[in-house]
Write a protein that binds this DNA or RNA. Structure first.
Lengths: 222, 222
DNA sequence: ACCATTCTTCAATTTCTCTTCAACTTCATT
DNA sequence: AATGAAGTTGAAGAGAAATTGAAGAATGGT
């Protein structure tokens, strides 16, 4: 796996590179706008770490160019700017994630892993769990080879559960993931969606993998 | 999770506190410099929201003192001053993040979550003690690789114990940490939670690491 | 504009946790 | 050993969270 680190601060660049190397990535670096532009146009990377504030030009410009060339897939923006605008602009330009400085290297590592996973899945991708199979491209869900029909929310819920299996997920996290961060107040309707999803899976003869963890949330596991 | 809100504006303080309470945090507040100093020195918090402009003294001074005591981890500066200087000084003094006023509560929530995640992750998000392992992200507790189910209070209690292992912890400290500072009177119910936690760990085949120190409290050690 | 489907609200019911309580045991001190 | 304070335990009621069915609101396609 090859990663390009676009970052002008020398120490940070070096520590990221040395850390990621220990994590079995091969790293390449760019220290300013023109080097970043050259490398992104010349080579292919599995993931690009892009610092927005860059000598020689705005990092978002690089993202823009990447997008034009359909290479914006796999970009993780890192930025000290605490501006929501930058974040939104970046994500709109096709960045996969946004990590504000300062961050822990382990956090960075987790995000990179997520991006690469996402990127590689893309294509036609079938997620399986016991008798359950989800084709994320056609969005067909099957239980033991017979397909079932889910609504949009039920489908999103199932995907969220299955991609976080064996983890305890709070109602809050579910709400934020399915409805957006600005959700507030009452999440009781989630109960109803879970009920409906459970019913459809049960009707198809599947065991109830959606475990309720009282006071904490839910856990998808066998 | 316990959060200290250091903020002199009454309305803002109240709205943050009430919002964060709905988000499953237990909140404590300080309205001026001396109260802030007292509380930060007396209690432990998972995250401290620090308003820089504070009656009775500069908020950065508090951060400085926290840093001296190695308690500056988990500080989120909130400030109306949009001065880069303050921000840089703050981050240099060990603050984890900087959020300019005005902000959305959802943004604040996201930042707090990030800080706490970062703090707990710190390299490893799995806390281990002999056969016991706690994944603080997925909230899964395992004893010799078989997972056990804890209630919310039991889980919080175990986390508190294990992150203060080999220290004697008073019943009072436990009560304040799990239920918030406004607890008063009788903490006898802690006995019950400890009993239940002990039982679950014993059933899973773990030795009793929760040592009772007569007249003083408990100590988690082998 | 209509119908069908999905999403959300609401209240009744169930389930599980948290807290209280009282009986009992252990501990430190005299 | 006797005493009182501190800690342990099981049972049970209070309280909070989850489940469910039904019905109203929003959405989308024809």
């Amino acid at each position: 796996m090859k990663i390009l680190i676009i970052e002008d601060e020398k120490e940070l660049r070096a520590s990221i590179a040395s850390y990621l190397t220990t994590q079995e990535y091969s790293c390449d670096t760019a220290v300013d706008f023109s080097e970043a532009l050259y490398k992104t146009e010349t080579f292919d990377y599995d993931c690009i770490l892009l610092d927005i504030s860059l000598p020689g030009g705005n990092g978002l410009k690089i993202l823009e160019i990447l997008k034009e060339n359909n290479k914006s897939d796999g970009v993780l923006i890192i930025s000290a700017k605490n501006s929501l605008d930058d974040k939104i602009t970046g994500l709109n330009l096709g960045a996969d994630d946004y990590l504000p400085k300062p961050f822990h290297l382990s956090e960075l590592n987790a995000r990179i892993a997520a991006i690469i996973r996402r990127k590689n899945f893309d294509g036609h991708n079938i997620i399986k769990f016991h008798n359950l199979a989800i084709d994320t491209q056609s969005k067909v869900v099957t239980v033991s080879d017979t397909s079932i029909t889910l609504t949009k929310k039920e489908y999103e819920l199932l995907i969220y559960f299955i991609s976080n299996k064996k983890k305890v997920i709070s109602k809050d996290a579910i709400a934020r993931h399915l409805w957006g961060d600005d959700m507030a107040g009452n999440f009781d309707f989630i109960y109803t969606h879970i009920k409906n999803l459970r019913k459809k899976l049960a009707d198809a003869g599947e065991a109830d993998y959606i475990k309720s963890i009282y006071g904490m949330g839910y856990k998808f596991s066998d």
